[in-house]
Design a protein around this nucleic acid. Structure first.
Lengths: 253, 253
DNA sequence: CAATGGATATCGGGC
DNA sequence: GCCCGATGTCCATTG
């Protein structure tokens, strides 16, 4: 019985032989620990796409929720990965070398990491309450507008959030001071053409719903807008109001 | 002089005191090693947004390229992070506890991880050739069409890729058997409304360029399409051709 | 530098 | 389970 199975919090092997590494990784997976394995390896992936990665030194992380990450010494993103809810397995291949595999269905995906050498293997028993508090999101921008509707313009009245249209949900639906219907699309950061297309789809869908004679307004709310997006807004008769989620002043175009 | 500075490949401390942890992390950052630090900590971030994370046990990874990752026991994504090209620093705070910070400018961003306890600290000297070969991408889909244009339709002739329009670059520009201009937008996976909007913008822009009388065709190429996107395609007079990057048959709508 | 769009995007909410 | 849109998205490419 290993320390991990005993409920201890940490088990590490430096430069273990492959069998020792396999034993620890397998036990740690069973015990619900977070595992790291560092060494020279190759990586093969097959699923939504497929990839191969030749020999190199990387860090492999296996999480108890079934996520797997292969990190090189560069980049924020892992070079290979599996999302949560995968099944992890540690075995010895035909040459007696450590093989870590991760598999899931829907979609069918398989990741295999074949180690030539193992620098270190560690198992950590982690607990986390996981109460991240994040500010400066699109939700903060929405709340800011609901609290102070005049930030959109004098006389603007919010009537609904996430109002459904055939093209999707409008972030804020309301009326202007002359009673015209207004669709507001929110973005927490500077926007490009995509956001204009999104707002345009909503406005088109609502105009169709409200019958042709009613004039809809569409307002894009974001810290700023790119040149091309600005031109697209003008072409489609849509408007822009500069506003940040936090109230911090930023350059507004 | 530590082992890391000597060029050794691995240096680990299990349950180190905070000063020992600080020394190793600081030396490893200087030496260009990849660092992991596991322990109970709080995390504060301030930058494009801001966040706080209360006490919990996490794994912090510092990469020699300046990236930083804070991983909990759940999720593929780190709960906090910094992109590459940040400056990392390991110090002792006023209470003598390990403090890992990461900072960058443009945009101004700061990450601070305050450790209450340190389970383990490791430094790895990694080298990686980083030669990932990936198949099943949009680029593969494009090449497949350029090799076999009839997959779009009988008589289709590709004339250009990434052809610029005022609305952005069209993936493939070509002509049909009757000489009409065709814009083709490629997606490697099932598409929703966004892709329709993207194609629509290109077609509108090209029709404007080619003068009003010329009839443009817009074709969306993807494995399949959602209901709403299908309706949007019909509304805008755009077309859909089911095709996968690899040729593997998938359910096509 | 900004801008644009892809990604094995991941993630969460709604239906 | 699919669909849809947000993300501190990251990231490569291009101007």
């Amino acid at each position: 019985m290993t320390a991990v199975e005993d409920g201890l919090r940490l088990e590490t092997r430096e430069r273990p032989d492959h069998e020792t590494a396999r034993d620890l990784v397998a036990a740690a997976i069973d015990a619900g620990a977070l595992v790291t394995a560092v060494g020279r390896c190759t990586v093969d992936y097959e699923g939504r796409a497929s990839s191969t990665l030749g020999p190199g030194e990387r860090l492999v992380m296996l999480k108890p929720d079934g996520a797997a990450l292969v990190h090189t010494d560069e980049g924020q993103q892992p070079v290979n990965w599996q999302p949560p809810d995968c099944e992890h397995e540690a075995t010895l291949d035909g040459d007696g070398l450590l093989l870590i595999e991760s598999h899931r269905e829907t979609p069918e995906e398989h990741l295999a990491v074949s180690f030539e050498s193992v620098l270190e293997v560690s198992a950590y028993g982690l607990t986390d309450e996981r109460d991240l508090s994040l500010e400066g999101t699109e939700e903060d921008l929405r709340q800011r507008i609901l609290d102070e509707p005049y930030l959109i313009e004098e006389g603007f009245i919010p009537l609904a959030t996430e109002r459904e249209t055939p093209a999707g949900a409008v972030d804020i639906y309301g009326e202007d001071s002359e009673g015209r219907a207004v669709a507001v699309e929110l973005k927490r950061r500077r926007v490009g053409p995509d956001a204009v297309g999104q707002l345009g789809r909503y406005v088109d869908a609502m105009e169709r719903d409200l019958h042709a004679e009613t004039e809809m307004r569409g307002i894009l709310v974001a810290p700023s807008v790119t040149d091309r997006a600005s031109r697209l807004l003008a072409e489609r008769g849509l408007e822009f109001v500069p506003l940040t989620p936090t109230g911090t002043p930023e350059s507004a175009d």
